[in-house]
């Protein structure tokens, strides 16, 4: 017995080594069988948290790319949404698939220059003729109407902002459907005026103003703003309505360009009347 102890203590290092190796290999073998139930893997609380923190940090470096991807995806989705289709065959036929025909196409762009403090404000976007952008296309952001393309170069587009005194946008009150035109006459960049709403219409502060779709630059029901205040001047048939924009034009960054597929057809038809 004593000899055994002496033997053990003399070679304690080697025995400890063998013991630990046996433990390590049994862990190895066991881990191969029960990988998921093991505590010592990277999904445990501590290392998992560490990895997710590092991942979070890494994500910041990809934010730009991600945003671009999302914007593209949104544009794609918008062009498949119902509001960009129109009924072709009227009321009598109501089969969903074949009664709708796409009338608007969306593409995404980034605002690279912007102003709000002039009377005639323009934005510049990073898409141009090469990307199929043409004059008189509509530009919107997720929170509202932005403007209309005025000029395009090969790689850039110049957008006549809603904040441009000569820019008139056909707008309507969403609830009642009465339409007028929205103009901005300088001053506060958060407000514009809605004109030509007749005095018999009932208005409530906070009513939503959307595009009418009559101009065929913008589809119907694109958000513009809400009624901030209104008054009926004496002896006048039309309201003075102040509209607060939903979009803050100071920090527009990603926008969508709307191409109307049926604009030419519509214009040609309306020209016949003149």
């Amino acid at each position: 017995m004593r000899n055994l102890f002496r033997f053990l203590t003399k070679n304690s290092f080697i025995f400890l080594f063998l013991l630990l190796e046996v433990v390590a290999f049994s862990l190895l073998v066991q881990n191969n069988n029960y990988q998921s139930s093991s505590f010592f893997n990277s999904s445990n609380f501590l290392v998992g948290n560490l990895y997710s923190t590092v991942n979070n940090i890494n994500d910041y470096f990809n934010l730009k790319e991600e945003n671009q991807k999302l914007a593209q995806q949104n544009a794609k989705l918008q062009s498949t949404s119902l509001s960009s289709f129109m009924k072709v065959f009227g009321r009598l036929v109501q089969i969903n698939d074949t009664t709708f025909m796409q009338s608007y196409v969306y593409s995404s762009a980034k605002v690279i220059n912007n102003s709000t403090n002039k009377r005639q404000n323009y934005l510049t976007i990073d898409k141009g003729a090469i990307n199929g952008i043409e004059a008189e296309m509509g530009v919107i952001s997720p929170k509202g109407v932005v403007g209309i393309i005025k000029n395009v170069s090969d790689h850039f587009g110049s957008v006549m902002s809603v904040l441009h005194e000569k820019n008139k946008i056909s707008a309507k009150i969403k609830k009642s459907g009465y339409f007028g035109s929205l103009v901005w006459e300088g001053g506060n960049y958060r407000e514009a005026e809605l004109k030509d709403i007749p005095n018999h219409v009932k208005l409530v502060i906070g009513d939503t103003i959307v595009t009418s779709g009559y101009s065929s630059i913008f589809p119907e029901n694109i958000l513009i703003g809400t009624i901030k205040e209104f008054e009926l001047p004496k002896g006048n048939n039309f309201y003075n309505i102040k509209v607060e924009f939903t979009e803050d034009y100071l920090n527009v960054s990603h926008v969508y360009i709307i191409k109307s597929l049926l604009k030419e057809e519509k214009k040609a038809l309306e020209k016949l009347n003149d």
Partner: peptide, 26 residues
């Protein structure tokens, strides 16, 4: 030896390869 065991098992925890680094470090 003990320290090697701890070091190896920590590294294995990161790579989810329990036992591989542990045995090698021991």
């Amino acid at each position: 030896l003990i320290v090697a065991f701890l070091l190896g098992i920590t590294i294995d925890t990161f790579t989810s390869t329990l036992g591989v680094h542990t045995s090698a470090t021991i």
